[in-house]
């Protein structure tokens, strides 16, 4: 079964084709890396899949729902963590979780024990009543991820979740991603870190709005005679004509 399918998905802004007929599938429970240089069209594609923006042409479905007609159904079944930090700085840790849990239709009596559980796992139980603004960035990101999957979505979209985070926290963050995937949540993640790309089951690489490569990291390395994903990325991204 596929969580996400896209067929010739295209988004144009005037004459500019941000996403150029991309076709791919993401399997259920997979960690799918969505790579590309700045301005390659990753965020635009991701926004369409999250129901934030309509495609110009092509077909796509997320969790079995159509991106044209069933955006609100998509939204009930996904979690999303944006590039920008997305929790409320002037709410406490538990108030943030309660709010996002609540808007996905959970009841307070379901939210309370689960929040406790999650904060314990994150080692944040003593910070539950502190304002989010007082937390260091790494903790905020981990908290944002926990919040994004709090309602047990079928798919979680992560837009550069680890940018600006130290290597130790990044490691811990990926452990959380694996844990979520093992529970059956499909993970769709964009990143600029090539070592993170190696953690993914499969990756796609976008260049100038098109997907130029799509496979498991091992196979891509073999295909390009490369030692690391870095080299694969250079080999492909060098062809790019546009940048931001």
């Amino acid at each position: 079964m596929y969580s996400i399918t896209a067929e010739k998905l295209t988004k144009k802004f005037g004459n500019f084709t941000a996403v150029d007929a991309i076709t791919f599938e993401v399997k259920e429970g997979e960690i799918f890396g969505f790579l590309g240089a700045n301005g390659a069209g990753k965020t635009t594609a991701m926004r369409i899949l999250c129901g934030l923006s309509y495609p110009t042409s092509g077909k796509a479905s997320v969790a079995g729902f159509d991106v044209y007609k069933q955006q609100e159904d998509i939204k009930k079944n996904i979690g999303y963590m944006s590039q920008k930090f997305s929790l409320y700085e002037n709410l406490t840790v538990s108030e943030n979780i309660e709010f996002y849990g609540g808007v996905y239709g959970l009841r307070m009596r379901e939210i309370r024990p689960k929040t406790k559980n999650i904060l314990q796992k994150l080692g944040l139980d003593s910070e539950a009543n502190k304002l989010v603004s007082s937390l260091p960035l790494g903790w905020k990101q981990k908290l944002a991820f926990s919040t994004a999957i709090f309602h047990e979505p079928r798919i979680v979209f992560l837009d550069e979740p680890t940018s600006g985070v130290d290597p130790v926290t990044r490691r811990q963050f990926w452990e959380m991603i694996y844990e979520a995937a093992s529970r059956g949540i499909t993970v769709f993640v964009t990143t600029h870190y090539m070592d993170e790309a190696e953690y993914c089951n499969r990756i796609s690489l976008m260049v100038d709005g098109r997907i130029d490569a799509l496979d498991a990291p091992k196979k891509l390395k073999a295909e390009h005679n490369a030692q690391s994903m870095d080299e694969v990325f250079y080999a492909l991204a060098r062809k790019a004509k546009r940048s931001d």
């Binding site: 939204k75 944006s82 920008k84 808007v103």
Partner: peptide
């Protein structure tokens, strides 16, 4: 943006 991806 976060609000817009929720079913609110």
């Amino acid at each position: 943006e976060q609000i817009n991806v929720t079913p609110i």
